[in-house]
Design a protein around this nucleic acid. Sequence first.
DNA 1: CGAAAGGCTCTTTTT
DNA 2: GAGCCTTTCG
Length: 728
Amino acid sequence: MAIDLLQGLNPAQREAVETIQGPLLILAGPGSGKTRVIAHRVAYLVKVCGVRPHSIMAVTFTNKAAREMRERIFHLLGQTVEDISVGTFHALCARILRIDGEHIGLGKAFVIYDGEDQLSLVKRSMEEVGVDPKNFAPKAIHSAIGAAKSQLLGPQEHAHHRQTYFDEIVQRVYRHYEELLAQSKAVDFDDLLLKTVRLFQLHPSALQKYQSRYLYILVDEFQDTNLVQYVLAKLLAQKHRNICVVGDPDQSIYSWRYADLRNILNFEKDYPDAKVVYLEQNYRSTQTILEAAHHLISANVHRKEKGLWTENEVGIPLAVKEAYNEEEEAHFVVSEVDRLVKEEKHGLKDFAIMYRTNAQSRALEEVFLRYGIPYRLVGALRFYERREVKDIIAYLRLIHNPYDDVSLAKVINVPSRGIGQKTLVELTGFAKAHSVPLYTALQMITEGLKTKGTTEGEKPYTSLSPRIAVALESFLSILNELIGKSQEQNIVRLLDTLLEQIGFRTYLLGMPDGEERWENIMELRATAGECEHLPPEEGLSAFLEGVMLVSDVDNLDEKADAVTLITLHQAKGLEFPIVFIVGMEEGLLPHIRSFDDPAQMEEERRLCYVGITRAKERVYLVRAFRRSFTGTNRPNLPSRFLADIPSRLIASSFGGEQHPKVEARTPSRVPAKPVFKAGDKVRHAKFGDGIVVSCIPSGDDQEVTVSFKGEARLRRLLLSFAPLEKLA
DNA sequence: CGAAAGGCTCTTTTT
DNA sequence: GAGCCTTTCG
C-alpha cells in the first residue's frame, strides 16, 4: 500500500512525501502538484507510518483548502479522518482558545470581532481617549494596531517601540481598545493568533499539551505567514521538530497583512538540519504560459531562481487586448467567453476573470447580466457582510455574550425603537464612567429608574425621558428573554424566535430590496441548519464561530456552471483553463500605491504572476485605454508588466489594435431591423416565457427588454446572445 | 427621534 | 461614486 500512495508521483514529490522526520521545506512552484503532495504526505503518515490522525496538524490558507485536503485524504485512505486538525491558523487558534483560553482569562463565550467590528471599536476608543478622527484616520490607527499585533506587540511592548507622535496616539488608542475588548469579552482576528501565543508563553503546561499531541505539523502557503504565525508554528513544533512547510516566495502577495517573506527565506537558518525539496515540474499550464510567467517574474531582483518546466504542450500564445474603456473591456471579455463556449465547447466554469480591485467587478457584472451569462462573484459584497445579515449575527452574538458592546451598539435600535444617537452617547458615557459594558449599564439604568421613587441615590441617568426609559427597558427584556431561550432552543429555533420577537420580516419588507434581504436571512437560516443537531448553547457557539471565520472563497461552488469573477489575491491556489486578467494598466496593476516602493512593486509583479499561472490553456491580458476612477475618467498607460512578456509569446492579431472604439460604437452602422415588437410573446431557455416590452437596435445588435413571467423586474438582453424564441 | 439632503473625503488586496 | 458625517426639517 506504500506503493499505492507513492505511485504517480515524480521523484521530488516522492521525496517530499517520504521525508517524515525533521524539518522539511518544500519549495513548490505554481502547478507543481503541491496540494497533491500534501494530501499524500498526510495519508502516508497515517497509513504507512501508523501515525494517529489525532497527532497531525495541517494549516491551510483558507477553509476551502482545508475541506479539500480532508476530501483528498479521505479519497486516498478510504476512511474519514475527522481527528486530524486541519484548518486556517485562525480557526485552529479559535479552537485552542475555546478549550484553554481560561488560563489567560478568556471565558468560553468570547466573541470574535472581524475587521468592521474592530474599526468601530477603534472609533469608540478614540472618542473615549480624546483623539479627534479628523486629525487621525481611524483606519490608519486600526491598521497600526493590526501591525503591532501581527508582530507580537501588545500595548506595553508597542510603547517601547514608539517613535513618532502618531505612534504615541496609536499607543493611547490601542491601550484603551484592549480594555474595551476585554470588557466585551471579545477577541479580534489578530488576537486569535496573538492570544494563543500568549497562552503558550505564559502557561507552559498548555503549550506542552499541544506540543505532545502534535507529532507532525504542516503549514501550507508558508510565504504568506506573519511573525505571530511563524512563532506559533515554531512553538508547536519545538518538541518533535517534525515541521513541514510548503510555499513559493514568488507567490507571496500578503505583505500588507504583515506576512514576512523572511519566514520562508530564513527557514534553513532557523532549522539548519532542514531538508529542502524543490517541486519544479509544472502539470498545469502550457509551455507558453509558463514561459511568459517566467519572464515576468524574472524582472524581480529579490528572488531565488527556480527551474520550472513542463511536459505539457506548447499551447497557444497569450492574447493581449486593448479596449477603449472599462465597458468595452467587459464587452470584449464576455464576447470571447461566448465565442469559446460556442467554438471550443468550453463550460462556463472553465473561465475566470481576475482583477486587482473589487471595484472593477461592477463593469463586468453589468455586461454579464445583460448578456444573460451566469457568473459567480467572489468577494466584493460578501454574504456575511450584508447589513441585514450582520445585524442578525450581531443579535446572536449578543445573546451568546451580552457583554459584546460592538454588537449591542449596532442593534439596540434595529428595528427602530426610538433609541437614537443621543441616547446611545448617554448610555456609552454612563458605561464609561462606571467602567462597565453597555449591557451592565443598561441593567443599572433600568434598575435605577424602577427604584427611583423609593430610594434616593445619585442618579446620573435621570436625564432620560420616560419614553426612552421604556424603550431601553423593552430592549433589555427582549434580550434577556432571548438569552433564556438560547438555553433551551436549538440554533434554528432560536433564530426564528429572534426574528419573530423583533419583527424583522416586517421591518425588512418595509425597505427597498426588502424581499431580497429577507431571502438573505432565510439563507442564513439554512446555514444555521448545519448546527441544528447540536445542543442549544454549543450550536449557537459553533454557528457563530463558523460564520465569523469563513472567507468568500470558502463558499465557491465548484459545480456551478458559471464564469468566476475574482480578485487576484483570492485566486491564489485556484486554477482555471482560461484566465482573463483585466485592468492591465499602470496605476491599477501595478497599483499606484506601489509606485514609490520597490518592494511593493515586486509584490505587484508577483500578483500578476499568480494570476497568469492560474491558467491551464489560455491567458488574456486586457486593458482599457480610459477608465473612470471615481467620477473622473482618465487615460491610463499599459501596464509595465506587459512589456516583460516577449512578443513572440503574444498573439499578433491582438497586439496591434489601437482604438477599437471607433469601430464598435459609431451609429453610422445600419441597424438591423427589429426582430421583435412590443407585445410579442417570447420564450427564453433559462428565464421561461415573457412578453417583449421593447426592441431597440444597439450597435450591430438589438437590445430586447422582456418582462418574464413570475419576475418583478424587466430584463434587458442582447439578441445575438439571448436564446429567444418567438411564440405564436 | 429619524428621514432626507447636502457636503466631505478617500480611494488595494482579507483571514 | 460611495460611504460617512453633519445639518435640517417634519
